Amino acid sequence: MTAWGPILATTDFSGPARHAVDRAAHLAHETGSTLSVMHVTPGEVLAELRRWLGTGHSSESQLAQANRQQLQQLVDAVGTARCIVAKPVQTNGSVLEEIRREGDALDAALLVVGARGAGFMRRLVLGSTSERLLRRTTRPVLVVRQTPHEPYRRVLVALDFSPWSAQAVAVAQHVAPQAHCVLFTAYEVPFGDKLRYAGVDEATIEHYRVQARADATQRVNALAAQAGLLPGRWEACVVEGEASQRIVEQEQERDCDLVVLGKHGRSATEDLLLGSVTKHVLAEGSVDVLVSTAR
């Protein structure tokens, strides 16, 4: 098996973060990739400790030692369970900058975080730290929501036919090489409500709807052919409506366990990740989410 590339998982030792590390170990075993597991003690935590107890207090070294031991125990446990050797990485400072620095040092192919966490990991996924990390990184980010029991089985890849869509399919194939692929796109009749208001008859609007669906289906088929997806290993999912709502509906209806989104939309200035689609999928969906960041 040809290794995909280094995987970097981050943990704050919470339960959800443990799921993320376990999934990262599963992927490392499946893809033949190396795995590093990183814990960052936030700089503000150390600053607060020093403010109350003074610089050089024994509690600071005790905290560092406890974190190292807990990280090593976690690495040993997932390594044994998944038959891999994982590397622990313990550091202090800005969580965002330390993750970026380590990702760059490893040239990581994938960053893995938990969907919920305690302390900095919760802020990392749900707050401004997450937005800054995901806006700046050029590395795919996997947000883990579920306890991993098996390799991903069915992956929904959301397409908008921007230059990022083909890369989203490629990343999905790396992360879930054995999974059945659902290529999803949502279409809408341009100015549908306005056409009705303007008195355009329903037959004409229906004609536009049929044409929009046919165009979207053709583009999905073309992208699948371009990506080299084999017959029987993928299916098209072309639905009418607003994309974020339809993604959540279809991930459940089609029993998917991973959703893949491209970071950007149809133009370089439209950051889909920070817009309504990804926020809605992360807030309302129930499965893991992989954000592809490369064009």
Rank of each mutant, 00 (worst) to 15 (best):
S130E: 04
W164A: 12
G93D: 10
T138M: 09
K194M: 12
T269V: 01
T293D: 08
I7A: 04
V171S: 09
G54Y: 08
L53M: 10
H29Y: 00
E30P: 07
V141N: 11
A47K: 04
I7S: 02
C237V: 13
H174Q: 10
D12M: 13
V239G: 06
G265L: 05
E30W: 08
E97S: 15
E44Q: 07
R139W: 13
R136L: 09
G119C: 07
L111K: 11
E249S: 07
L110Y: 12
R219Y: 03
E284F: 01
A216C: 08
G262M: 03
R23A: 00
V189R: 02
A176H: 06
D22S: 11
H149F: 00
G199S: 15
W52L: 14
A294I: 06
A283S: 15
L74C: 12
A227D: 01
V287S: 04
V143H: 02
R233D: 04
E251L: 09
V259K: 04
V40M: 06
T55N: 02
H57G: 10
R295G: 13
V45H: 08
R68P: 07
A3G: 15
T10Y: 06
V45S: 03
V85K: 10
K87Q: 09
W4P: 07
V141M: 13
A214Y: 07
T80Y: 07
L142H: 04
R219K: 15
T91K: 12
A186C: 11
S14T: 14
P163H: 01
R122M: 11
V141E: 01
G228S: 11
P6W: 06
T11S: 12
T185D: 07
T2Q: 06
F191V: 05
L273R: 00
R266L: 14
V289E: 09
H26E: 11
K279L: 03
R209T: 09
V182G: 00
K279Q: 07
R68I: 04
S292R: 07
R154G: 02
A227K: 03
E150K: 14
R246W: 02
Y197N: 01
Q250P: 09
R154V: 05
S36N: 11
A179L: 10
L71I: 02
A105F: 00
A17E: 05
A158V: 13
W234R: 08
E98D: 11
C181M: 15
H180N: 06
Q226K: 03
R233Y: 01
Q73M: 10
G285F: 08
T278S: 15
C256D: 13
E270S: 14
V248N: 00
L230M: 09
A64M: 14
V40W: 04
R100P: 02
Q250N: 09
E253L: 11
R209Q: 14
S14P: 14
E188Q: 15
G103H: 01
H29V: 02
E60C: 07
I7E: 01
L274I: 10
R82Q: 14
P177I: 13
F120G: 03
T137H: 05
Q65Y: 06
V125P: 03
G275S: 02
R213Q: 12
M1R: 12
Y197I: 01
R246V: 04
L261D: 04
V277Y: 08
A77G: 03
K263R: 14
V141R: 13
Y197G: 03
L111Y: 15
L46H: 04
A47F: 07
R101E: 05
S58F: 04
Q62S: 07
Y187V: 07
W164V: 03
